[in-house]
Simulated scan of single mutants.
Amino acid sequence: MPSKNITITEDAYDRLTALKREDESFSELVVRLTEGTDPMDFAGSCPGLGEHVDAAGEELDDDLETTQDELFG
C-alpha cells in the first residue's frame, strides 16, 4: 500500500498519541477520526474569523509595502 510522510508538531503528535488506541496504527487513527466527517459541517463555526483574516491581510500588505519602500526606496 502506498504511503506518504507528513510533518506534524510535537504537540500534534502528543495529541494524536493520546487518542490512539493500543491496537491501532496512526493511519487507522486518522481514518477513524475523519470518517463520516464533512468539512462543511464546520462552516460558519468561527464567527468573526473573516474579519480577522481581512485585518491580517491588510496588516501584511502594509508591512510588505513598508519593507519594499525600505529596500527599494
Rank of each mutant, 00 (worst) to 15 (best):
M1I: 07
M1W: 05
M1V: 08
P2G: 09
P2R: 15
S3A: 15
K4N: 11
K4Y: 12
N5A: 12
I6H: 01
I6E: 03
I6M: 11
I6A: 14
T7I: 12
T7C: 09
I8W: 07
I8L: 14
I8E: 01
I8D: 04
T9F: 07
T9Q: 08
E10C: 09
E10Y: 03
E10Q: 14
D11A: 15
D11F: 05
A12D: 09
A12P: 00
Y13V: 01
Y13A: 08
R15M: 09
R15A: 14
R15Y: 06
R15G: 02
R15C: 04
L16N: 01
L16K: 02
T17I: 09
T17G: 02
T17C: 04
A18F: 10
A18C: 10
R21K: 15
R21Q: 13
R21C: 09
E22C: 05
E22P: 00
E22L: 09
D23W: 06
S25H: 09
S25A: 13
S25E: 06
S25K: 11
F26G: 00
F26R: 05
S27V: 04
S27D: 13
S27W: 02
S27G: 06
E28F: 05
E28C: 07
E28Q: 15
L29P: 00
L29Q: 03
L29M: 12
V30L: 10
V30T: 05
V31F: 03
V31P: 00
V31W: 02
V31N: 04
R32V: 03
R32K: 12
R32Q: 05
L33V: 08
T34E: 04
T34P: 00
E35T: 11
E35M: 12
E35A: 08
T37L: 14
T37C: 07
D38I: 05
D38Y: 02
D38F: 01
M40I: 08
M40V: 07
D41S: 14
D41W: 08
F42W: 14
F42H: 14
F42Q: 06
F42I: 03
A43M: 09
A43D: 11
A43H: 09
G44N: 12
G44A: 12
G44F: 12
G44H: 06
S45Y: 11
S45F: 05
C46A: 15
C46H: 14
C46G: 04
P47V: 11
P47R: 08
P47I: 07
G48K: 09
L49N: 03
L49Q: 05
G50D: 11
G50H: 06
G50I: 12
E51F: 11
E51N: 11
E51Q: 15
E51V: 13
H52N: 02
V53E: 06
V53G: 05
V53R: 09
D54R: 11
D54E: 15
D54V: 03
A55L: 13
A55Q: 10
A55D: 06
A56D: 10
A56M: 12
G57D: 04
E58T: 01
E58N: 06
E58A: 03
L60H: 08
D61L: 03
D62H: 12
L64K: 08
E65C: 03
T66Y: 08
T67W: 13
T67V: 12
T67I: 13
T67N: 07
Q68P: 00
E70V: 14
L71R: 15
L71E: 10
L71G: 06
F72R: 07
F72C: 13
F72I: 07
F72S: 10
G73S: 15
G73V: 06
